[in-house]
């Protein structure tokens, strides 16, 4: 099929198999490798992107569901002021160790902060429920997201 959609604010038109996973379209067809594959089965959240304003696992989204959609990936988000705020907080608060889960965590953080711009710890943990991290034990990820909310007051 011919897939026309918007990725990180840019209109794209590519020829793809209708069942091709959004994750592969992003990583292999569009060379946007910020989005990671941790499991390929919807369990880890490393592949999180925002489609039409909603946080989704891109490994579970087929091309057909992307037609006409607006997709935001970590590659795009991190160039915005909000994205920079979040990624900077991950460095300040050590929210990333190996970093493989982190792009997904950053997307989850953006989705959460859009809903609640000053989340308490419980709300942050709820917001991260679909994202697995094996390194940090999550505490410093929570710290990073709360730090971004605080320093970035007014951005969300």
């Amino acid at each position: 099929m011919k897939l026309e959609f918007t990725v990180n604010g840019e209109a794209r038109s590519i020829e793809v198999d209708p069942l091709r996973r959004l994750l592969d379209i992003l990583r292999d067809d569009l060379a946007l490798t910020g989005t990671k594959e941790g499991c390929g089965e919807g369990e880890c959240g490393a592949c999180s992107v925002i489609v039409e304003g909603k946080l989704v696992n891109s490994c579970l989204v087929p091309a057909t569901q992307c037609a006409g959609a607006e997709v935001l990936t970590v590659d795009g988000l991190s160039e915005s002021e909000r994205g920079e705020m979040i990624t900077e907080s991950f460095a300040l608060m050590h929210g990333a160790q190996c970093g493989f889960c982190t792009p997904g965590m950053v997307m989850a953080a953006e989705a959460l902060l859009r809903e609640q711009n000053d989340p308490d710890e419980e709300a942050v943990r709820e917001g991260l429920a679909g994202n697995i991290c094996r390194c940090t034990g999550y505490d410093m990820i929570v710290d990073a997201i709360q730090d971004a909310a605080k320093r970035g007051k007014g951005l969300w």
């Binding site: 490798t33 910020g34 970590v74 590659d75 991190s78 929210g95 990333a96 970093g99 792009p103 950053v106």
Partner: peptide, 14 residues
């Protein structure tokens, strides 16, 4: 700050 963390968070680490 962790020296490699922002790059990782931004999806730019290879």
């Amino acid at each position: 700050p962790r020296v490699d963390a922002q790059e990782k968070a931004a999806g730019a680490a290879a």
